[in-house]
């Protein structure tokens, strides 16, 4: 991975790849929650969130609202940064490097180049090596994960289907990525270049994974997690942490559900503890069957 590179557009502090991936490593085993107000952010922090994602509307409302979804108002993001001491992430549109420059100038700790917003470029993603701030990107399979890492993403999250309250796509994408990783570890060296071609993935990163059996950056899960059991499921399938978007603040008792998901995520392989924190949480968000979402409105399809 390149050590240092400077953006042409703007003056920015020196950084190293290790620092960028380092923050992602610190978030392992955590829950990252979508929040739309400073009050939400405090509820998330008090529940034990490891970070928050500041945005104007949670994905379920972006779905309802329709239209073009853009980067949130920087003033709103700043108010959340002022409200909590944990890291604050924010989303830019796919390929919208100017939005990313604004978020970096604002001082957010992580940028999510996110399919939840309307893509700004249908050919190219942001050159993430050009930024001092680390990026997280979504993926559905190993090839997509490796293209994003090749572009400089310091964290990967499987996409799932944001705002659906339905974990089925999150499961599909995590299984697909983990299968892809396992497959690389049993291929012979002569097979790796063809595999890189088939996946559309950078060869050097692919070779590294074949040797280590893991992605070179943390691999988290997003898109549809709504219950403590969902979090425990994704962790057992290989996610190193979970993003919860609409699942918390679209439920009946957000503070209680947030705390329960944090606990289930920590003790994901201890069913007795997950049982305890699953009790009496009130209403979960109403989910959507994926087959009822028109093809054109499926967020996971955005990104190339």
């Amino acid at each position: 991975m390149p050590k240092k590179k400077r953006a042409e557009a703007a003056e920015q502090p020196a950084y190293t790849w290790r620092e960028k991936v380092g923050l992602a490593q610190m978030l392992r085993g955590g829950v990252i929650m979508d929040v739309v107000t400073p009050d939400h952010a405090k509820i998330a922090e008090d529940a034990g969130a490891a970070a928050v994602m500041a945005l104007e509307r949670v994905p379920a409302d972006i779905r309802l609202h329709g239209g073009v979804a853009r980067m949130s108002d920087p003033e709103m993001i700043a108010s959340i940064m002022a409200a909590v001491s944990i890291p604050v992430m924010a989303k830019c549109r796919i390929g919208h490097f100017a939005e990313a420059q604004i978020l970096q100038a604002l001082g957010v700790d992580f940028i999510d180049e996110s399919e939840v917003l309307t893509p700004a470029d249908e050919m190219y993603h942001v050159d993430k090596h050009a930024f001092a701030v680390p990026f997280v990107c979504g993926c559905r399979d190993l090839g997509e994960a490796l293209r994003r890492i090749g572009e400089g993403a310091a964290m990967i999250r499987t996409k799932g289907e944001a705002g659906s309250g339905n974990v089925v796509e999150a499961v599909r994408h995590m299984r697909t990525v983990m299968d892809g990783i396992r497959r690389l570890t049993v291929l012979g060296p002569e097979q790796l270049m063809t595999e890189a071609k088939n996946l559309g993935a950078p060869y050097e990163v692919l070779k590294e994974i074949a040797a280590t059996g893991q992605l070179p950056v943390p691999n988290f899960s997003a898109g549809g997690i709504a219950t403590p059991a969902d979090a425990a499921l994704m962790r057992q399938l290989g996610a190193e942490a979970v993003f919860v978007g609409s699942g918390i603040f679209k439920s009946g008792d957000p503070a209680r559900r947030a705390k329960a998901i944090v606990e289930a995520n920590t003790f994901y392989d201890d069913p007795a503890k997950v049982l305890e924190c699953s009790k009496g949480l009130g209403e979960a968000m109403v989910g959507i069957n994926i087959s009822e979402i028109p093809e054109g409105e499926r967020l996971a399809k955005r990104g190339w």
Binding site: M26, L27, R28, G29, G30, E45, G48, A49, A50, A51, S85, I86, P87, V262, E263, T266
Partner: peptide
């Protein structure tokens, strides 16, 4: 990690 998170847990 996050000291607030770890402390609470």
């Amino acid at each position: 990690g996050e000291s607030t998170t770890i402390g609470k847990l």
